[in-house]
Amino acid sequence: MSVSQPVSEIEVEITINSRRRRDRVPSRLLLSDYIRDTVGLTGTHLGCEHGYCGACTVMVDGDAVRSCLMLTVQADGAEIRTVEDLAPAGSDALSPMQQAFHDNHALQCGFCTAGFLMTLESVDPADYRHPQQVVELLSGNLCRCTGYQNIVTAVAQAWSDSTQAQ
């Protein structure tokens, strides 16, 4: 729906983790701040706030995007998924990828983890059969603890389990 006159505040309708919301937000509000401060989902982390580190990666209409490089108003009408949506509701279980990260020590401080998980959630494993492709996929997320090896190992485990399950 068009917004014909310039406005400094706007009402948006956004579905986040399957819940639809309507909020009146400032035009300047970044999607990352909307997710954390307005909605209260603090699993999405903000590292650099200029699109470099990937910590704030979420899914918008199925695609991994940097939430710090998107205005909330640009997500008007969109469906957003954040890290809170990954583990099955109503249990202590983790998603297979989260479990693989846990099993392989693919995080230490955990600050970057939500971003990695959302990047991985957004893609089809069939498109990343070679380890080099996985490394390239993960190059948009920075991790300062693990040295990445354990993350790559975790991805390999989670995705090989998922292909065996099929």
């Binding site: 068009s2 006159q5 310039p6 406005v7 400094s8 400032p26 300047r28 970044l30 706030e49 710090c68």
Partner: peptide
Amino acid sequence: MKPAPFEYCRPSS
């Protein structure tokens, strides 16, 4: 690291 205030519009043409 937040943008300064601005106005926003979304024209249809």
